[in-house]
Amino acid sequence: MDSISERHVKNSKNQMGIIFVLLIVTLLFSIFAMGKGSSSSLDMLSTMKIIIGVEDANSIQSDIIWKLRLPRILMAIVGGAALAIAGALMQGCLGNPLVSPLTLGVASGAALGAALAIVMGFTIVKSPEIAIVANAFIFSLIVVAIIIQLGRMRSVTAESYILVGIAITFITGAIVSTMQYFATDAQLSQLAHWSFGSLSRPTLENTLWISVAVIGLMPTAMKWSWDLNTLALGGDDFAVSTGVDPVSIRKNILILSAFMTSIIIAFTGLIGFVGLAAPHMSRLVVGNDYRKLIPCSAIFGSFLMLFSDTIGRTLFAPIVIPVGVMLSVIGGPFFMYLLLKIRR
């Protein structure tokens, strides 16, 4: 093997090593996070023993870990991963680093659905426990349907998707604002709570179903890695010359990303920053090869979400600061630091 090939292989191995280390750190941190909280604090070893059932912990500790913290931590891991993957896919297929899972207007659709349920009492599913989630999910799917319709037009460009997404955001924003204008204080407060983004809403059962859906969609995302490499680098003409049909690939990738975003946001409320920042942090450490970028973004997304939520739960305990707020407060400066340090 010549020196250029050797160096490429070495770089590639180093990047895989970084991904592995990040994975281990995230797993260890999730065990640590499971032991920490306002009601009781355990060290990692004791937490580990309770999880694997070696130690017969008292039932309160076991209940706290299994029923309260595990769903939340699992949701942080899965939600962070899904939003980060959606962000990475969308940035690549639209060739635009400013894009996040919120760009297409999926989250605005979800917000409209939630507002209709909270303020107007308009619910598609009548069961009160899931009415808001169902509304948010169904209205975000309406946005996915608009994206599918848009994708059927042969002349649609990357910019058209972004502009339509911005238009949807404005339209739904105006409707939600109108509803807020007429809402009671209690309704306003509930809507504000929804939009903060929180991991406390999904139950363990919800979280397990969400995990199955996200894990099920991941191989499809990975399958498009080479197409994304081509689209992200050189745009449509360059992609065609390399054997990639940009119009159909972009449509499929956007539908998948929008769907992944819908699943998460319907349960958690508005969380956007992780989908913008995690892919960029990953680009700084593993480069732009989507075969590595997708798994690395997923891990970074999980870690960011988990870390922010753990700080939000413990910093001012027993007050819990919503994860959406913490993500921006902690993730924002960290993201800027990384960008400035590495691009110096």
């Binding site: 490429h8 770089n11 060739g95 635009n96 081509t230």
Partner: peptide, 17 residues
């Protein structure tokens, strides 16, 4: 490109087909 890619990886895209 809006993204940073090594020259090697750009040339490698030629092998995509």
């Amino acid at each position: 490109s809006s993204f940073s890619v090594d020259v090697f990886d750009v040339v490698l895209l030629g092998r995509r087909p």
